[in-house]
Design a protein around this nucleic acid. Structure first.
Length: 269
DNA sequence: CTGAGATCCTGTCTGC
DNA sequence: TGCAGACAGGATCTCA
């Protein structure tokens, strides 16, 4: 589910816990994408949160000498709840307990993960990540360089977290539509002009989605309970058979890289 | 090294 | 209604 904008929205919603003391972490189900280590519970008693940030699709909660890494996978989300409001939902797997509130990790499919590390920059899941798409390092030259070295299609390239982070299946289709590039176009045939348009489109789509609080297709809610409003602005994703908002041709759904992919066969080439 | 495909898991929707 | 099968926003791992 969550791509960069949804993770960013979640991070902003929980940022109010910065400088607060985490009393403890309770893990109800350790069988996530990776087994949750015992130290996640044991090493986090009464620790002050120094900083909360996002790196790629990871939520990073930093303490003085360690960091908690949370990935939401496909169906994960965080929910802020009053301590006294004592109810559980199905698939509530972990709780971060503060004095009056708690942050609950809920994830039906359990593709998410929780790690504790003393050196997050060197963590195997973090250290090989590519550039942040909203940073200046992500520009047409960088993308052109990456594309020129690849034999894959362009959609695969922009979803490769080792090259560019944060772009998932929805925003890949949306960005390629805005840039008028077919998702199955070979990356090696992408021109510098294409790169200029695509970089611009990715940044635009992600920034706008963040502004709108992420995309709610089915079940994304931010940690403060508000849904994302981006879905009303989707141009192609989930719109197969409907008219392109640009030319009125029918939007097509195909499977590329084993993922649902939407595009306009007339506008994109 | 690369790239294609399987895989982890549950919930929801579609078609018979 | 019931039920089988497809599909879902991710990303790693295995194998050729």
């Amino acid at each position: 589910m969550p791509e960069l904008p949804e993770v960013e929205t979640t991070v902003r919603a929980i940022s109010k816990f910065k400088n607060k003391t985490l009393k403890e972490i309770i893990v109800h189900n350790k069988n996530l994408r990776w087994k949750v280590a015992d130290k996640v519970e044991l090493a986090n008693k009464n620790k002050k949160i120094k900083e909360i940030e996002r790196r790629a699709k990871y939520i990073l909660i930093h303490f003085e000498d360690s960091s908690l890494m949370i990935h939401l996978g496909m169906s994960g989300k965080l929910r802020i709840q009053k301590i006294k409001n004592n109810f559980f939902m199905k698939h509530d797997h972990a709780e971060l307990i503060f004095s009056k509130e708690k942050i609950i990790f809920n994830d039906p499919r359990r593709f998410g993960s929780i790690h504790l590390t003393n050196n997050f920059k060197n963590h195997k899941l973090i250290k090989n990540l590519g550039v942040e798409p909203l940073s200046k390092s992500f520009n047409k030259s960088y993308l052109f360089d990456v594309c020129s070295k690849s034999n894959l299609n362009i959609k695969k390239v922009i979803m490769d977290q080792k090259k560019i982070v944060g772009v998932g299946n929805i925003y890949a289709s949306e960005s390629l539509f805005l840039a008028k590039i077919r998702p199955d176009k070979s990356a090696s045939k992408i021109s510098m002009d294409d790169c200029y348009e695509l970089v611009k489109s990715i940044k635009k789509v992600l920034r706008y989605a963040i502004k709108m609080g992420g995309t709610t297709l089915k079940d994304f809610y931010s940690a403060d309970g508000s849904p994302g409003y981006f879905k009303i602005k989707l141009n192609v994703y989930g719109r197969s058979g409907q008219k392109c908002k640009n030319c009125e041709e029918a939007i097509v759904k195909v499977t590329i890289n084993q993922r649902a992919t939407f595009y306009c066969p007339n506008c994109q080439s």
